[in-house]
Computed example of a mutant assay.
Amino acid sequence: MSITIFHNPACGTSRNTLALIRNSGVEPTVIAYLTQPPGRSALQTMIRAAGLTVRQALREKGTPYAELGLDNPALTDDALLDAMLAHPILINRPFVVTSLGVRLCRPSELVLEILPQPQRAAFSKEDGEAVIDASGQRVRP
């Protein structure tokens, strides 16, 4: 069973997503995408498979988005991809790839849609929000 997460350990959402994957009993392949960004083709494939546009996969907060003028609606997907590859911090995270699909896991619970194995134990996010109960079932607000 292969699961890959494009991870930023400084991001709480990414850490929560990684913890949910591990809570299903699987140790994923963890790619620190800031130092090992995906290639252009892989990035395009992930974005498409997640059902997103390139612009939707672009991260604005805490990035050079504004300085690079990436809010310009005339920019093509190729120009946006060029910026993302030159500045991997512009790639929104975490992307997770499994045999059941690809998701940009914002919020982290979106990973549950594509995990091949069920959750094995209770899980709460870093902020204390309960996500999975003791029987491995999703907690609904």
Rank of each mutant, 00 (worst) to 15 (best):
N92V: 05
S41D: 15
V97W: 13
T98A: 06
I3Q: 01
A32E: 14
F95E: 13
R22D: 13
G62R: 05
G136V: 12
L112N: 01
I21G: 01
A134R: 15
R15C: 07
Y65L: 04
M1F: 12
I47F: 00
V97L: 14
C11R: 08
R15Y: 00
A50W: 03
V139R: 04
R106C: 03
D133T: 07
R55Y: 06
A66R: 13
N16A: 15
L58T: 10
A57T: 02
E126L: 14
R40A: 11
G12A: 14
A83L: 05
R22G: 11
T4D: 07
S2Q: 15
Y33N: 05
T53H: 07
C105Y: 03
L115Q: 07
L58D: 09
R120V: 01
I31V: 15
A42Q: 15
V131P: 07
T45P: 06
K125I: 07
A10N: 14
K125P: 02
V54Y: 06
D127N: 15
S99E: 15
T4M: 10
S108Y: 01
L18K: 02
G39Q: 11
A19H: 02
R140I: 14
P64S: 03
S2T: 15
A19V: 05
A86Y: 02
G128Q: 10
A122H: 01
L58C: 12
G39H: 11
Q117K: 05
L70H: 04
T63M: 06
S99Y: 09
I21V: 05
R40I: 09
G128E: 08
E27H: 00
V96S: 04
A66M: 12
T76F: 12
E67S: 14
R93Y: 07
P88Q: 04
H87N: 12
Q117C: 10
A49Y: 12
K61M: 12
F123R: 04
V102S: 02
A49K: 13
K61S: 13
M84Q: 08
P116C: 04
F6E: 10
C105A: 11
R93D: 00
N8C: 12
